[in-house]
């Protein structure tokens, strides 16, 4: 009897901590699901502060809309409207993200009333000049890396899996370590390391809030450890399941961004 109770307790503990259930791939998949695919759709007013090593600041302010059009890890549509800086105000940027092929990207330039397709860039390229890459914003294919559970560790008192993800093909880094919260599955901390094991880029989740029942990182920082440049991002008016329609993610609304969604 005592053995049974002990076994049950062990099993319970295993299930609740996920050790038994989760392979590293499943942990990463779950993490992507909450980090990049939460809700059917998503909206946030995004403030990006680009801060140089000597403290000079530049501001990028935008509204970001996202609609999931496929399964977790699959197709998505993004719509970004820029408020700041002044020379890009009213510009809109749209991405149709595909799991199986190159994304489609369009940019609308209001001064000449023109919509242009943008050539697919390296996903590891900087997003609007910040320390975040396109991949950081819209995700990286699960199968592009091999994942292993490096260890378990606490971050600010929260139990985390530390997942080591090694890219199968060449990128700007050798591998990534991600501290994934065991309860929310959000990454609380990430480090990108070079071949010598030196960290070159570091991510931190600075504030997590529950929005419509979804744990959401509302403040985050990405720091380039080589240049000292960093980007602080905060979300305002974050919301999920607001009823975005695929029809919004078209040339028509790229040229006439609807106030209802961007304000």
């Amino acid at each position: 009897m005592r053995k049974i109770i002990l076994l049950t307790l062990l099993l319970l503990a295993a299930v609740t901590t996920g050790v038994l259930a989760a392979t590293p791939e499943e942990i990463v998949r779950k993490s992507q699901a909450v980090f990049l695919y939460s809700g059917n759709d998503f909206k946030a007013r995004v403030m990006m502060k680009l801060i140089s090593a000597n403290g000079q600041e530049r501001l990028r302010e935008m509204t970001m809309l996202r609609l999931n059009t496929g399964p977790i890890g699959g197709d998505q549509k993004y719509f970004i409207y820029f408020f700041q800086p002044a020379d890009v105000k009213d510009m809109t940027f749209m991405v149709h993200k595909y799991a199986a092929r190159d994304d489609d990207r369009w940019l609308f330039m209001p001064a000449v009333n023109m919509v242009r397709r943008i050539a697919m860039q390296d996903k590891a390229a900087s997003f609007v000049g910040s320390d975040f890459t396109y991949e950081d914003v819209s995700g990286r294919d699960l199968t592009d890396d091999t994942h292993e559970l490096a260890r378990e560790e606490s971050v600010d008192g929260k139990a985390c899996y530390v997942i080591k993800s090694t890219p199968k093909a060449g990128t700007g880094y050798a591998y990534k370590l991600a501290w994934i919260d065991k309860s929310t599955f959000l990454p609380l901390k990430e480090e990108y390391l070079d071949r010598d094991g030196a960290a070159i880029r570091a991510f931190s989740a600075d504030e997590v809030k529950e929005i419509k029942g979804v744990a959401t990182i509302t403040r985050r920082t990405m720091k380039n450890l080589k240049s000292g440049h960093r980007t602080e991002v905060s979300y305002k008016s974050t919301d999920y399941n607001i009823g975005l329609d695929a029809g919004l993610f078209t040339e028509r609304f790229l040229k006439q961004p609807p106030k209802k969604w961007i304000e």
């Binding site: 397709r117 050539a119 390296d122 590891a124 390229a125």
Partner: peptide
């Protein structure tokens, strides 16, 4: 034809 052979270069 337009492409980006490396970051921030078109």
């Amino acid at each position: 034809y337009q492409r980006q052979p490396w970051e921030d270069f078109t």
